[in-house]
Nucleic acid binder design. Structure first.
Lengths: 225, 225
DNA sequence: AGGATATGGTGTATACTAAACACTATGCAG
DNA sequence: CTGCATAGTGTTTAGTATACACCATATCCT
């Protein structure tokens, strides 16, 4: 298609919403901006996506550089979230932000560059741009994902107890579940299997460790909760 | 963030997947490309999104120009679908495509520019780029939307029969529903109300017309089918 | 006028899923 | 050996989903 004026694309940026459980609470990774605009404020890690790289490739490079986290290696699950493009969202001018959401169970920032800080989703600091809105959107998507897929696996280590599993759901959903009903329903999905290992810790009965049969994302036939 | 080389954004394009029911079948609006690449092939209406316009504004302008359809006026529902950005998807070079999906019940292309053609989703022609994949993705999203929201309204006129309503669900889902169970379940959602109007057509008992109480998209508490 | 036709409209029985709810089991610490 | 802290387990009841068949009624035709 021809334009009278030469075609100028908008700025394209990428941002990552990275979730992790810390102390049984759902947390998000933020960085403190070192430059204007919003210098000193908290923001999602992200940056400019140039020609020739996919947005996911750009995000991997940028988040590794700015936050010391490899979204490909440190996250167990990642998906595109939404593309935010209101003209006013960036004070420097029109920017189209392609956002991604992911979850990990043990995000280890490279200590040399570890400027990333985790905040509980229900106790977030004021954030730059429209990033508070993006985090909220991501949280809603995450709740949906946990109800119709096996995505919880992304928060858990390979071997885990049923109590840990339930806690992961509760942290994401934001409310408590009944232990007996939870186990009955979850186990009936057949996603996991018992192992012969137990976890012994503290002055109480040890817990059996379970693991997922498949490491891949599956859509459930009967959705969960 | 600083780059050694000046920042060059990728090309940003927009595409629309517009659904409509025709003869009780789900159809998609396509146009025949008039220029290379893929000249003569069928494609989703779309084009370049420039700096300074939101992607939705750009889409409205482009689809009106190329297909004679106003997505804002002719569609009852529109939402962002996904952003496709594999580097290889456009033979001219890296393009990021922000796609939208919408539904209408009476899409009237401006006849002077009416180069848009509707194809049934289960009998699509070969399509340019990755557009076949995009349509499939949109169809899956649409099925999901109809199960957990009241989005069917977008396919129906203001006054409709329960048979038409059921047909809309069947056309999107791709399978038939039981009439009695359908009515029981749907009516229990309380989204619609009876009117005192009837539709008389053909040699049989007339059907009562219903209408939606609210014209807005709502997420259902108990999802449908 | 009355019968054929074509679609509109309705109910019940059964199976399954969801929700509420409390006690025993077991390893460790003291 | 007792206390403690978490692990682990079943039943009852209510609600939702599924399967399934017949009567109602306006029109058309003869």
């Amino acid at each position: 298609m021809q334009y009278k004026t030469p075609y100028t694309p908008p700025t394209v940026t990428v941002d990552a919403v990275m979730f992790q459980l810390i102390d049984n609470a759902l947390n998000v990774a933020l960085i403190q901006r070192s430059t204007e605009p919003f210098k000193g404020e908290w923001a999602l890690p992200g940056g400019y996506a140039p020609q020739g790289e996919t947005t996911l490739q750009a995000l991997e490079r940028i988040v590794l550089h700015k936050a010391g986290v490899s979204i490909l290696n440190d996250l167990s699950y990642i998906e595109q979230l939404y593309t935010f493009d209101s003209v006013a969202r960036d004070p420097r001018g029109h920017a189209v932000a392609v956002t991604y959401m992911g979850c990990g169970q043990n995000i280890h920032p490279d200590q040399a560059k570890a400027v990333v800080t985790f905040f509980p989703v229900n106790n977030l600091p004021p954030m730059a741009y429209d990033h508070a809105e993006i985090v909220k959107y991501a949280h809603n998507r995450l709740i949906a994902k946990l109800t119709y897929t096996n995505a919880v696996y992304a928060f858990l280590p390979q071997y885990f107890t049923l109590a840990e599993l339930q806690t992961a759901y509760e942290a994401v959903f934001g409310y408590e579940l009944d232990k007996r009903n939870f186990r009955k329903k979850f186990l009936s999905l057949g996603l996991t299997e018992e192992t012969d290992q137990m976890r012994r810790e503290g002055a109480h009965r040890p817990a059996r460790l379970h693991r997922f049969k498949s490491p891949d994302l599956e859509v459930l036939s009967r959705s969960f909760d």
